[in-house]
């Protein structure tokens, strides 16, 4: 994923020039943070309380970590208080009911200014920002700020916070085992794979006594080594023959799998699993 860093070594080319990270921290493998993948850079819905708790339990030098995930960009919903506008930037406190956090938005263009002018004290806003430490305190560098018009967004945001917390604390521990397998080959995209794994489990849930669903059996067939090797995919007749099910039943399962994104039609009536490699 980060192979470009090894192809072009900026440190070697420009001797750093003061802008490159020092040798010790450079390179994806030697990074002090365990996962510098895209998961770590995701936008986290958080409450101010979560940020505050994480801040108190971490020393200031390192990144903020909430539920084992590096916090960079966050999204919050709350009321604006103590707004102070200046020519270059606007600062305010965001009160989401769990606490208050200082926010700052730089005004670069006329659009930003109009946007900021529309935000008044007492308004509910959804904001996206970058959490950063500045002189020993945490503040939020806001890059998007818009008023909440449908107030269901407030409940929705907090339910999001709960979900992400649950995902990162419980569900993720199962996922991370597979993510940290030190296989140098670019294997399956774990994130999307697991996203698909759930719907497939649902299929199996529909069947009694742990009997495999047609969908799962189709995947099993497609995952057979001989079938993996077929670039053109596996003909549907062959799958049907292999499973001993009618073509109608098979096509229903195939359609479901295609909708889930688990398989695709390589050429007409030939199917391939996306995780064939």
């Amino acid at each position: 994923m980060y192979s470009s860093a090894s192809q072009f070594d900026g440190n070697a080319a420009f001797s750093g020039g003061g802008f490159m990270p020092s040798q010790a921290t450079q390179g994806p493998d030697r990074s002090p943070f365990p996962s510098k993948n895209r998961d770590a850079q995701s936008l986290l819905p958080l409450t101010v309380k979560q940020i505050s708790d994480a801040f108190q339990s971490s020393d200031e030098k390192t990144n903020l970590i909430v539920d084992g995930v590096d916090v960079n960009n966050v999204t919050l919903v709350g009321r604006v208080c103590n707004k102070a506008g200046r020519i270059t930037d606007v600062t305010f406190l965001l009160d989401d009911g769990t606490g208050r956090i200082e926010c700052n938005k730089w005004l670069q263009e006329a659009v930003d200014m109009n946007e900021a002018e529309g935000i008044l004290d007492g308004m509910y806003v959804r904001l996206h920002g970058h959490l950063k430490g500045f002189q020993g305190k945490r503040m939020l560098n806001v890059f998007s700020l818009r008023p909440v018009t449908d107030f269901n967004e407030i409940a929705s945001h907090f339910i999001d916070c709960i979900y992400v917390h649950l995902y990162n604390t419980r569900l993720r521990t199962g996922v991370s085992n597979q993510q940290h397998v030190s296989n140098p080959k670019p294997i399956t995209p774990t994130k999307s794979y697991h996203a698909q794994a759930n719907p497939l489990n649902q299929f199996s849930g529909q069947h009694i006594n742990g009997q495999k669903s047609v969908e799962e059996m189709v995947l099993d067939v497609l995952h057979l080594p001989t079938n993996r090797a077929r670039d053109e995919g596996v003909p549907r007749d062959l799958i049907a023959q292999h499973l001993g099910v009618s073509l109608d039943k098979l096509m229903l399962a195939v359609k479901n799998l295609i909708e889930e994104g688990a398989i695709y039609e390589a050429i007409a009536d030939h199917y391939k699993s996306i995780i064939n490699g």
Binding site: V48, K49, I51, S52, F55, L93, G97, T98, G99, R100, I101, E102, Q135, G136, K137, R138, M139, F158
Partner: peptide, 14 residues
């Protein structure tokens, strides 16, 4: 100002 940066002392419970 420093201590105001983040204040969770007076939350409003749902």
């Amino acid at each position: 100002f420093l201590f105001q940066a983040m204040d969770t002392s007076n939350p409003a419970a749902f």
